[in-house]
Design a protein around this nucleic acid. Structure first.
Lengths: 327, 327
DNA sequence: ACGCCATATACTCGCAGTGAGCAAAAGTCG
DNA sequence: CGACTTTTGCTCACTGCGAGTATATGGCGT
């Protein structure tokens, strides 16, 4: 029998809530997943219109900036049994992933929808503060998986444990794929048989949605560097500290404060308003708005003066250092 | 009646021939087009396998590096009458565009296939030497189209006629879209009615294939900067001059020779072999090969020391001041 | 009112990367 | 042998950025 082709649209809608990146999720039978819908060629003229239709109707959350990520067509990409979009088991599902950004995390109308923090699914992607500890734990597991394989070790080094001050935040997808191969994420066991692994990290999502989210995170992080997309995620006016911590939350690492402000100011990405923000502690900060040069299509993004983590050195030996699993 | 969904795979396969970028094209009833095929879910496990199957079977040209570009799903994207992939007029065609790179332009077995130079379709994308003149001509047409519209003028300035030394080579798609909107490319007339425009630039392709090619060019150019993909397009060993002119041909502008070699050498992207190249004129050049740090996944790309064009200033007067084109 | 604290903002210093160009080296060709 | 061409080595100035020090400006506790 001939299989029918179905196109599913998936969207990783991101917004900041209390300064932390969240993604809009929908509760499904098998767990959390991204909002998605089946693309109906009779009803929708373009993918993007279809998307807006789905999300806004299902959850009443408005979509702002939208960008196509990738089209996933591999057979067996979906979990074996799960046929979520179509009713017919025999259909072949191809899914188009999208990234969307919203300036605020509007409460979804649908009860089964919720904003969940990025790092609930990708704890290892947050390298601020104690993310370092987790990295040690994962390092142990990953190096055990790598064993003597030169190539695996090399991959680890380049994606996960590179020289410490050159953690490439935008390679979130590569890292997820490593975790998958090393069977450190639940999906790896669900998709194939169920040989239990040592320890699992992050919360699973249905189907390949966590992979799509990883793609979205990587893309957004990369884009921050060369396009001023950050302004799609924050309110009209903001303090430079707000701007900075938004950036840090998305990137998963901290930046040098003084240099950061120097770079955004001199690049003309922001302009000062006359008002100042009021808060509890410290000197009141000036309020800024996105400058005239902050056009997403044209302008360049942010320079990111990485902040070196003072203490703690690089990941060195595959030293098991057992015991303390800091979950 | 319900429309069926069909997925078409399009590929922009690029290789260098005599140092100039070419794309593999197939002659179709309506003109030249990119190789493509219909994705059959029963036959192909993944998109990429399907692609390799199509191209290698149809033209006997092997695919090297492959990368997905974008998925085009808009209705009316295809030319009205042309229904090329499927036999059924009523089908809705969604096409997935791919970029592929080959180290050499193997002669295709299929008679209707041929390698055609990029700049035959995008003459304005070649800013080396006399590309400047053409830019003047197009400038005139585009500014006439822009008229008083502030926004249009701004778009022109940022994509086409930015400060002269900051021509953003990777925005080939933006430029094509401008040309389309201004009806300076044949497709614009074909897709809507046929109000003849003033003058048309570059050769047309069927369907939206020229748009896909523009996407491919832009992506490849962008990628050159941050991934060493260039080595997928040149032979195993090469002289630095070869490397440089390959890069220049792809980018469409010239780079500073001494600084270029300094950057590739110091970045460890290349390593010297013991041999030297032999040619007719000038001092023999050392042969290099891709260095150990030239891994596509990990390493960073090239720094591109732009060469300022000595004579001729910014776009001002369409003055056709001929000069000695130093090819 | 005064001093403490926390944050915002200003400014300096040094180095590495990069843009630009000069000059020598090593071949070919008449 | 000298003219010519292309490769290769090297210098120099400037800018951008990493890093750090210092000052401004508010709230708050006593």
């Amino acid at each position: 029998m001939e299989h029918r082709l179905v196109i599913g649209l998936n969207i990783a809608l991101t917004a900041l809530r209390d300064g932390e990146p969240h993604v809009l999720c929908v509760k499904r039978p098998g767990g959390w997943g991204l909002p998605f819908g089946r693309f109906d060629p009779d009803e929708h003229r373009t993918f993007e219109l279809a998307l807006r239709d789905f999300v806004e109707r299902q959850t009443a959350v408005p979509l702002g900036y939208v960008e196509q990520l990738y089209t996933f067509g591999d057979k067996g990409r979906e979990a074996p049994r799960a046929s979520l979009v179509s009713g017919d088991e025999a259909d072949r599902i191809v899914s188009v992933g999208y990234l969307a950004l919203s300036p605020e995390a509007t409460e979804p109308s649908l009860e089964s929808a919720a904003w969940l923090p990025w790092y609930r699914f990708f704890p290892w992607e947050d390298q601020r503060a104690e993310g370092q500890d987790l990295r040690q734990v994962i390092a142990g597991q990953l190096y055990r998986w790598a064993g003597d394989h030169e190539d695996r070790q090399e991959r680890l080094r380049s994606t996960f444990f590179s020289a410490d001050d050159c953690w490439e935040e935008e390679r979130a997808l590569d890292r997820y794929e490593l975790m998958y191969e090393a069977r450190l994420v639940a999906e790896a066991h669900r998709d194939r048989d169920g040989v239990e692994g040592p320890e699992l990290f992050g919360e699973a999502m249905i189907s390949d949605h966590r992979r799509i989210l990883a793609t979205a995170i990587g893309r957004l992080r990369g884009k921050l560097r060369y396009r001023p997309v950050i302004f799609k995620l924050i309110p009209e006016t903001f303090t430079l500290s707000t701007l900075q911590s938004a950036v840090e939350a998305l990137l998963g690492f901290s930046v040098h404060k003084q240099n950061f402000r120097r770079s955004v100011e001199s690049a003309g990405l922001v302009e000062k308003t006359s008002q100042t923000a009021q808060q509890t502690k410290g000197r009141p900060a000036a309020l800024y708005r996105a400058g005239p040069l902050a056009d997403v299509a044209t302008a360049t993004g942010l320079t990111l003066p990485r902040l070196k983590i003072p203490a703690r050195q690089v990941v060195s030996s595959p030293e098991p250092s057992k015991g303390s699993s800091t979950k």
